[in-house]
């Protein structure tokens, strides 16, 4: 049994060092002979057994004796542990390739990505949403048809083959959490996509959701939507009228014009209309994304977006890694 473990361990170490490659070769020879029902005559098994139990003997004669006598039992245990470890290692790699995180969709610390660079959003669908009171995920969503760009809350190429529509709420924590993913997608795919933000203020959940949404439109009036949007997400705890006006001032917007816009309820009906459209599509939570006809609900991993977009764009699997 020890030869199988040696083959696995030294086979891996042998990738990096010649001296281990020699042992791996011996181990392979030994395993091959045993498989073909012949005696392992390389002496590797005896060498490893003696060296390991000899080392234990240095600490205590009893320990050495146990290691020597039950060496085969320990070898089996270690073989099983090695195989289990290899299985989980493989699973981790698979998850990393598919979900961008070695733990799969559930996220968490990943040894392959200790800095979390490919995992800006560490959440799952469940618990990664803000919902209209009394609702959760489960509604059947219909992808929006005949998309027309009615305001400036979009970025990308209007002729792009992939259209990403986000129904979000500026006061929703999970819409905020999805923001780095959105930014990363915009940066990576550039003119290959069109990103559109649609208002879905969760008024029953967040009391400042509606004014914040209207304020974003007022910033758009002055051509400063994206900066203001960033401000809103950065200050989700303080989105009352005075705060919203203060942010506009901070950004150097015309504060009189901004205040008038906000006080007059200029965009109330537009926001309401977009919200109703969302309801009609079956949306009850934020963030809800549509990538062409496919929906993604919640602050999901970047890799999940990438997988769908690559498929829509017809990007081959080897480019998937880029």
């Amino acid at each position: 049994m020890i030869c199988i473990i040696a083959l696995i361990v030294f086979g891996i170490l042998g990738i990096f060092s010649v001296k281990y490659r020699i042992i791996a070769k011996e181990a392979f020879n030994c395993v091959f002979k045993k498989i073909t029902l012949r005696k392992c005559d390389t002496g590797l098994d005896i060498r490893l057994k003696s060296q390991i139990s000899g080392s234990f003997l240095k600490f205590s004669p009893r320990l050495g004796r146990i290691a020597y006598k039950y060496f085969e039992v320990f070898s089996w245990i270690f073989l099983i542990l090695t195989l289990v470890t290899l299985y989980f290692m493989g699973l981790g790699l698979y998850n990393y390739a598919v979900y961008g995180n070695c733990n799969g969709p559930q996220g968490g610390f990943c040894i392959y990505d200790p800095l979390g660079t490919t995992k800006p959003v560490n959440t799952t669908t469940e618990g990664s949403i803000c919902a209209i009171p009394g609702h959760s995920i489960g509604a059947v969503l219909t992808a929006p048809k005949n998309i027309t760009i009615t305001d400036g809350a979009y970025i990308g190429n209007p002729q792009a083959g992939v259209v990403i529509i986000e129904y979000g709420c500026y006061s929703c924590h999970y819409t905020k959490l999805a923001e780095p993913t959105v930014k990363r997608l915009i940066k990576k795919y550039g003119d290959n996509i069109l990103y559109i933000y649609k208002d879905f203020p969760l008024r029953g959940t967040h009391e400042t959701a509606e004014p914040a949404t209207e304020a974003a439109h007022c910033a758009l009036d002055q051509g400063r939507y994206w900066e203001y949007r960033e401000y809103l997400f950065a200050n989700q705890q303080r989105q009352f009228d005075e705060d919203l006006k203060g942010y506009a001032k901070d950004l150097g917007l015309n504060d009189t014009q901004f205040s008038e816009c906000l006080n007059s309820g200029k965009y109330k009906s537009l926001v309401e209309q977009t919200y109703s459209e969302g309801i009609a599509l079956g949306i009850t939570v934020t963030p809800t994304f549509f990538i062409n006809n496919q929906s993604l609900v919640g602050a999901k991993d970047y890799s999940e977006f990438k997988k769908i977009i690559n498929k829509e764009l017809g990007i081959s699997w080897w480019e998937f890694w880029k």
Partner: peptide, 13 residues
């Protein structure tokens, strides 16, 4: 006890 084992144990121990 195998003669190789004796030699190897004397060496490692």
């Amino acid at each position: 006890m195998d003669h190789h084992e004796v030699a190897l144990l004397l060496d490692s121990y």
